[in-house]
């Protein structure tokens, strides 16, 4: 197996005697998109600041393609591109001047590469305007442009969807998937909105109060539940009491009433026979739906109430 793109090894951070990160331990592989989800104050930005060397680790280590950020900063960081918190650029320079500025901090980035990056984030038009006249979404795009300028192996985006319109989010989603697949880049995206990044992630790590409380494989979770014996079903039927009784007595299934629907779980194979027997007993069926428990539900189950400590 090749070296993972990013490894966090028992990373801890204490600021003023307060343990903010309590031992993070995870790995992101090449070509993988890792979603880093957690409520406000969970420690996402703090973790990202440690990965890019802005903050020192109190304990543990972080390796990028095997290079420790502590002992080999240059070797590690040259393979990283990042936006940390807001995409803050020089407001008194144009987008192009900003990109040139960062390009000068690497050995050889050509103007052609900068143009390429500008077209990737679709910023050709306003690139020669001063950044102070940019909208938040435009700054976000420019932020992404500077992050991928040097073709990093690890791309870290702290809330990149913040300020983007739906079209912008879709573009980023597509572009990130493309980067991960075609260039084998490992992408770490933080967000507190699961729904926004769920579709572009391969795996999701959920962080709360400085601890990783779950890592979830996105695609597995959906397919996995489809195959299980208990498919959650919502049924809109009339008269509802009669339907409830039939299902409970005939099929020995526990049924609940929820917002005018009947809600129960059954085996997939059993669904047609349930409907059949309802129809035979003169029940009108208006709608049958299998309700997926989404990651979002899981997310809330795991996190519970967000108490900011």
């Amino acid at each position: 197996m090749s070296t993972p793109a990013l490894e966090l090894l028992k990373v801890k951070k204490t600021i003023r005697n307060k343990e903010i990160i309590k031992g993070l331990d995870f790995t992101v592989n090449k070509g993988e998109v890792f979603g880093f989800i957690g409520p406000n104050g969970a420690g996402k930005t703090t973790t990202i600041r440690m990965i890019v060397g802005l903050m020192k680790l109190t304990e543990g280590d972080i390796r990028i393609l095997g290079n420790s950020i502590k002992s080999n900063f240059k070797g590690a960081i040259e393979k990283v591109g990042a936006i940390v918190e807001n995409p803050e650029l020089y407001p008194y320079m144009t987008g192009w001047q900003n990109l040139k500025h960062y390009a000068r901090m690497f050995p050889n980035i050509t103007d052609e590469r900068i143009k390429e990056v500008v077209s990737i984030v679709k910023m050709e038009k306003p690139i020669h305007q001063k950044v102070k006249r940019y909208s938040l979404g435009m700054r976000q795009r420019l932020g992404i442009a500077q992050a991928i300028l040097h073709k990093p192996a690890v791309l870290i985006l702290d809330e990149p969807t913040n300020g983007l319109d739906p079209a912008g989010i879709r573009e980023i989603r597509q572009y990130i998937r493309k980067l991960a697949k075609e260039e084998e880049i490992a992408v770490i995206i933080s967000s507190h909105l699961l729904s926004e990044i769920e579709q572009m992630c391969d795996r999701i790590g959920i962080i709360k109060n400085g601890e990783l409380i779950a890592i979830q494989d996105v695609h597995e979770s959906n397919e996995g539940e489809q195959k299980t014996n208990n498919v959650p079903i919502l049924l809109d039927a009339h008269p509802i009491e009669k339907a409830e009784e039939i299902i409970q007595t005939t099929f020995q299934i526990e049924v609940q009433k929820r917002e005018g629907f009947l809600s129960f779980q059954s085996e997939r194979e059993q669904i047609p026979s349930i409907i059949q027997s309802l129809v035979q007993q003169d029940i009108s069926i208006y709608q049958v739906a299998t309700s997926k428990t989404t990651l979002e539900d899981k997310f809330f189950d795991l996190i519970g109430e967000n108490t900011i400590e």
């Binding site: 600041r49 890019v52 060397g53 802005l54 900063f73 240059k74 070797g75 960081i77 040259e78 990283v80 990042a82 940390v84 918190e85 807001n86 803050e88 650029l89 020089y90 407001p91 960062y102 901090m105 690497f106 500077q146």
Partner: peptide, 14 residues
């Protein structure tokens, strides 16, 4: 003040 220090220090330069 501009927050640009973050983007400045994450380059392969000590």
């Amino acid at each position: 003040n501009h927050g640009t220090i973050k983007l400045l220090l994450i380059r392969p330069i000590q």
